[in-house]
Every structure is written in structure tokens, then in C-alpha cells.
Nucleic acid binder design. Structure first.
Length: 485
RNA sequence: GGCGGUAUCGUCUAGGGGACUAGGACACGGCCCUCUCAAGGCUGGAACACGGGUUCGAAUCCCGUUACCGCUACCA
């Protein structure tokens, strides 16, 4: 007998952007579904009309799509299922697991305040459950508004959580909670359970802020005669100060990281490691590997702190692993956008472009870093960094001598290749009395070629710049130095 | 307040009674490589919240304390 394929869902409320915590919940649901060949559904919990916006629904789609977390079947909009939610609540009214409550919000608030004044825990006193048939009938006939309350049975409600072990709640601590408002709309737990049953969800994997909703939901499943799903409660994600991740902590939306130049593969890898470990000290993984390795056994119980430093490092790792085509696809638009080049230009000298990317990517943690370093290789003339000039061209006259020497040595080369250049320049260093300290001429040269005191290896720079541009830049540097006293 | 959850280096984690002088990664320091900057390699400092048990033996099991987090709405 084959076990039925698991069906999971990610159920965000569209009240903001896709938060990294939500993204991670989605990721774990997705990994589980993909690993076991099950389904991963998406449900937008838009029953709170006041706070839900189409814009955030779009942001959720975009965020998930960017991360590569695709979903099966069509998106379920909770708000569209209102009739079923109501019908399910009424079914409980009929089968006696729920009852009408005619207490008003004002009365309830008053009793709650009174209880608090006495330092007592407030719990609905079930007074409406003691109403006689006749009283109820009269109230209804008079059109008195009522909510539907679930009648919490005696006993204990427990389940075997996939992350925690057994979690148990004494039912006596749970009040007869409302499932349907006076206006006939469902309360969260009602809507969730009704939908999860309708969607045939077999594993509910969500944030552990829902642990205390779970016993209520389990009771609802039972009242509706539905089979229970499994539950897995994932730990929260906190900011560096240990508090729940919020706007104060800076970027918390996955879209923020997308715009920061983070790769989706790195984001997914990083998120996966927040609250899950495959064991064996494995850290850098492709999505495929994560799917293969994923196991609820490796899920953590403790909240994790979101450390952007590690994310950046991880992005650098993924950047090195990125296939050239994808790297090109990512960097090209950015280079074009900042006006350094055009697509046609890059296409016309693709080998050169790929060689450049190879040199720059090892020095970059994000695709944006590559763009930031790229200017000297595209622009006609260099912009000199003042600090680099002050440091490397400190002694003008000797710098002029060095650069003229470099120019002559390179110009004399029959062939523009790095080993010949290295041989010639090291010989020049020797000749100028620097011995094996060839850096004494490489550094001023680096500034002449790139304007910076840091760059890829000097011979790589000469090669990528080419003979004409290299010599022109050295010439320009010499002229500049000689023009200034 | 009540109920629930959690507790290993600053951070992410390995660990599921003896293999622990507690391992890896990020960050930080040092060294190597080296023309600079990265990358890479080596290396250093850095943790089992506390107190009781159970056991020949506990980071690992149990209880308590503390701290933190969540829920306690006709929010989701």
C-alpha cells in the first residue's frame, strides 16, 4: 500500500510584502512536497478585507517566483470560500458541537475588564450555552445578533508535531471560541480548517506562532468529522537583537534582497539553513541537493537569528558556482543600466566579456559588486581615485620614470601576452634598482591603468585592456604627472 | 496573570548516555600564498543558561528555576 502523496500549502495573508520568515515557511513546505512527490498549494488568506491588498498578493507571487518556489493547482483565495466556511460553522451548530452566543462585544469587554481587575484569567463563561430552547428561539425570532461559538469538550488535545514532539493542551484552558461573527463571516481558525479540509491538506507546516491555534483547529476537524492532518511548527526568525524580525532590522522582504543583488539560489540556501541542517556539516547546496537532503528530522526548534553577513558570504559562494550564462544574464542588464556598455557591444566581444567576468566575480559577493568594479574596463579614460593617486604616485618624478619605463618596455614587446609582459616588467624593476620588489612598479601602473589601488592581477588587467588602451592610459598618466608640479 | 514553546561559541549549527580535551560554517585575529584587492589554505580566541536528580557515566534522559518567544480578539 503506497502512502498517499502529501499535500501541503503555504497560506500567507496579503498584508505586506513577502517576509523572509514567510519565504522560509514556504520553502520548507515546498522542499517537503518536492521531496516526496506531493503537492504544494498556495492559499491567499485575504479574509481581512481592511488589511489585504492586491499589491501584496502580487508581491507574494513575485517573491515566490523569484525564489523558484512554484506551486501546484490554482491559487486559492480564502475570501472566495466564505459560503463554505459559513456552511461548515452551521454544520457544527446542527451537530451540536457549536452554539449561538448572543453576548455583545460590549458585554464581553466589560466582563473581561472585570476579570482582569480581579487578576483572574478571563474565559467565556458559557452563559449562552445554558440558554433554553425557547430563549434561543425568541432571540432568533427577534433578530438578535449572535456569534457561533465552538463548544470546547472536556479532556486534553494533543498531537505529535513533526518538529516538537507531543504537544498537549488541557482543554479547560481553552475557552469556547467564536467561529462565526455576528455578520456571518468566519474567524481565522474556522476559515483555515474549512479550507485545509477542502484542499485535502495532509501536512500543515507553519510558524510556531500557530502552536496555540492548533488545539482549537484539531477540535474543529473533529467536530466536522474530518481526518486530521499532520502538523509541523517551524521556529521563528529573529533580528540580530533577538527580537522578532521587523522593519527596524532593515531589509525583511525577500524583494529587498533581490534588489540588493542577492541570488535566489543563495537566498534559498541561506533560508534553508535557518532552522534546518542536513547534517554532515553541509552548507552550500543547490536547490536539487536541498530537495534530496530535506528531512523534518533536521528541523530546529529554536528561533534563528537572521545574519546578513552570512547571507552575503553565501551569495559570494553561489556567485562562483553560477553557470556563466546565468551570470551574464544577471550582470549584463545592470552594466547596460548604469550606462557602461550596450548589449550589442558585449555580444560583439563575448570572449573578452567572459574573461572580464571571470576576473571580477571572484572579488564580488553580489552581482552589483561586479558592476561596481567594471567601470575601468569599459570607459575610455580612467577616473583616478584620489587616495590611490596620493599613495601610489607620491613621488611624481620617480613615478614618471617608472611609467615611462613600463611604457617603453611594453611597447617594445613583439607579442602582447602576460608571460612576456611579466618578464619584461620584472627585468625593468631590477634595472630600476627595485630588485625583486616588482610591486614598486606594479602599483603605480595599476593606478595608471585602473585609477584604483586594488584590481585583478596586473597582467590580467593589461590583457583585458589590450595593448592600445593600456599604452594610452600609461601615456595619459605620464602626461598628467608631468603637467602637475 | 494563565497556557504553550524554546535554551550548545557573538551568529547559523553538529551532537540524540561513553567516540567530547564539544566538531563545522559566518564574523573576528594571526600566518601562508602574493604585484594590490579578493579568493584559497593553515591557524587562534570563542559555547553545552542555572540547580537538582537518574546512571558506573549526561551537552544528550527527568524535575525545578531563570531568561526569551508565542497565544490568551467578533486580527490573521
Amino acid at each position: 500500500m503506497a502512502a498517499p502523496l502529501p499535500r501541503l500549502r503555504f497560506a500567507p495573508s496579503p498584508t505586506g510584502y513577502l517576509h523572509v520568515g514567510g519565504a522560509r515557511t514556504a520553502l520548507f513546505n515546498w522542499l517537503y512536497a518536492r521531496k516526496h512527490g506531493g503537492q504544494m498549494l498556495l492559499r491567499i488568506e485575504d479574509t481581512d478585507k481592511a488589511r489585504s491588498t492586491d499589491e501584496s498578493t502580487r508581491a507574494i507571487f513575485e517573491g515566490l517566483t523569484w525564489l523558484g518556489l512554484n506551486w501546484d493547482e490554482t491559487v486559492v483565495h480564502q475570501g472566495a470560500n466564505l459560503e463554505r466556511h459559513r456552511a461548515d460553522a452551521n454544520r457544527m451548530l446542527e451537530n451540536g458541537t457549536a452554539y449561538r452566543c448572543f453576548c455583545t462585544q460590549g458585554e464581553l469587554a466589560q466582563r473581561r475588564a472585570a476579570a482582569e481587575a480581579n487578576k483572574a484569567a478571563f474565559k467565556y463563561d458559557r452563559r449562552c450555552d445554558r440558554l433554553s430552547e425557547l430563549e434561543i428561539k425568541l432571540h432568533v425570532e427577534h433578530g438578535k445578533p449572535f456569534t457561533v461559538r465552538f463548544r470546547v469538550p472536556n479532556g486534553t488535545t494533543s498531537w505529535d508535531d513533526l518538529v516538537h514532539e507531543t504537544i498537549a493542551f488541557p482543554n479547560k484552558d481553552i475557552e469556547d471560541f467564536i467561529v462565526l461573527r455576528t455578520d456571518g463571516t468566519p474567524i481565522y481558525n474556522m476559515a483555515v480548517v474549512s479550507d485545509d479540509i477542502a484542499m485535502a491538506i495532509t501536512l500543515v507546516m507553519r510558524g510556531d506562532d500557530h502552536i496555540s491555534n492548533t488545539p482549537k483547529q484539531i477540535m474543529l476537524y473533529r467536530a466536522l468529522g474530518a481526518e486530521l492532518p499532520q502538523f509541523a511548527h517551524l521556529p521563528m526568525i529573529h533580528g540580530m537583537d533577538g527580537k522578532k524580525l521587523s522593519k527596524r532590522h532593515g531589509a525583511t522582504a525577500v524583494g529587498d534582497y533581490q534588489h540588493l543583488g542577492i541570488l535566489p539560489s543563495a537566498m534559498v540556501n541561506f533560508l534553508a539553513l535557518l532552522g534546518w541542517a542536513p547534517g554532515n556539516d553541509i552548507e552550500i547546496m543547490t536547490v536539487q541537493e536541498m530537495i534530496e537532503l530535506f528531512d523534518t528530522k533536521g528541523l530546529q526548534k529554536k528561533a534563528a537569528i537572521f545574519d546578513t553577513k552570512k547571507l552575503e558570504w553565501m551569495n559570494g559562494q553561489h556567485l562562483q558556482l553560477l553557470p556563466v550564462d546565468e551570470l551574464v544574464a544577471r550582470v549584463t542588464p545592470a552594466l547596460v543600466a548604469v550606462g557602461l556598455t550596450t548589449e550589442a557591444d558585449l555580444a560583439s566581444r563575448r570572449d573578452w566579456y567572459l574573461a572580464l567576468l571571470d576576473l571580477l566575480k571572484v572579488r564580488a559577493r553580489t552581482a552589483d559588486d561586479i558592476v561596481r568594479q567594471a567601470a575601468p574596463y569599459f570607459l575610455q579614460s580612467v577616473e583616478y581615485d584620489a587616495e590611490a593617486v596620493a599613495k601610489q604616485w607620491k613621488d611624481r618624478s620617480s613615478t614618471a620614470i617608472i611609467l615611462r619605463g613600463v611604457r617603453d618596455a611594453l611597447a617594445a614587446l613583439p607579442d602582447w601576452n602576460s608571460s612576456a609582459m611579466e618578464e619584461a616588467l620584472r627585468a625593468l624593476a631590477e634595472q630600476l634598482g627595485f630588485g625583486d620588489k616588482a610591486g614598486r612598479i606594479f602599483q603605480p601602473l595599476r593606478v595608471a591603468l585602473t585609477g584604483q589601488s586594488a584590481s585583478p592581477g596586473i597582467f590580467d588587467v593589461l590583457m583585458i585592456l589590450g595593448r592600445a588602451r593600456s599604452l594610452a592610459r600609461i601615456e595619459a598618466a605620464v602626461a598628467l604627472i608631468e603637467a602637475t608640479p
